[in-house]
């Protein structure tokens, strides 16, 4: 049986090839159709991804302003951490002996939100136990670098203005920058 099939198959193949040569498209037109097909595919894919990427950028963003006023420098008691702005603006306002600064509430290890433990005088992260001093310097757990500080300054009306669009990293020596703290 298998012998018979082997004989039949080449005959049919030969016949079909000679037939298709007459009816099929020319080599040149095949390539132009191929190019058109690929162009169409590229256009459809490109359009699809354009729409998908556009979708990632919402028309309206319901998030608090990036810079905000927090009251007058005298409102902040020395050596204290103000946690009022944590929920809305993700910032702690810290006043030490000589300056006021705004700390980011994002842990530098994996991005959880630490808690301010007033009795222990430290920020402590509930995810992997990183600890930060009041200044934002890391001292325990896996966090490799201190909390970041936001730009802080005085507005025209004398209120303290925090600008979250600019942050200052200790490990890059940016805490020396005079915009990273407010002298009082």
């Amino acid at each position: 049986m298998s012998d018979q099939k082997e004989i039949v198959a080449p005959r049919a193949a030969v016949g079909s090839v000679s037939k298709s040569r007459k009816t099929s498209m020319e080599r040149r037109s095949f390539f132009s159709w191929l190019a058109l097909g690929w162009l169409g595919f590229a256009a459809a894919t490109g359009g699809f991804f354009t729409v998908i990427i556009r979708y990632l950028f919402p028309n309206v963003l319901f998030e608090p302003p990036q810079s905000f006023k927090i009251g007058f420098p005298e409102d902040f008691a020395p050596n204290s951490v103000d946690i009022r702005y944590k929920k809305e603006f993700n910032a702690w306002i810290v006043r030490d002996d000589e300056s006021i600064f705004a700390l980011s509430t994002v842990c530098t290890h994996l991005g959880c939100t630490p808690n301010w433990l007033a009795t222990d005088n430290k920020f402590k992260c509930p995810c992997h136990g990183s600890g930060f001093r009041m200044t934002g310097i890391h001292f325990e757990g896996p966090a490799p670098r201190p909390l970041e500080r936001f730009k802080i300054g005085l507005a025209n009306d004398g209120q303290v203005l925090v600008d979250k669009t600019k942050s200052y990293k200790w490990e890059k020596g940016e805490w020396e920058n005079k915009d990273s703290f407010l002298k009082v």
């Binding site: 929920k87 993700n90 959880c112 939100t113 992260c125």
Partner: peptide, 10 residues
């Protein structure tokens, strides 16, 4: 979820 309040322990 509230980014300002991470459960403790998380």
């Amino acid at each position: 979820a509230n980014p300002a309040a991470t459960p403790n322990p998380s």
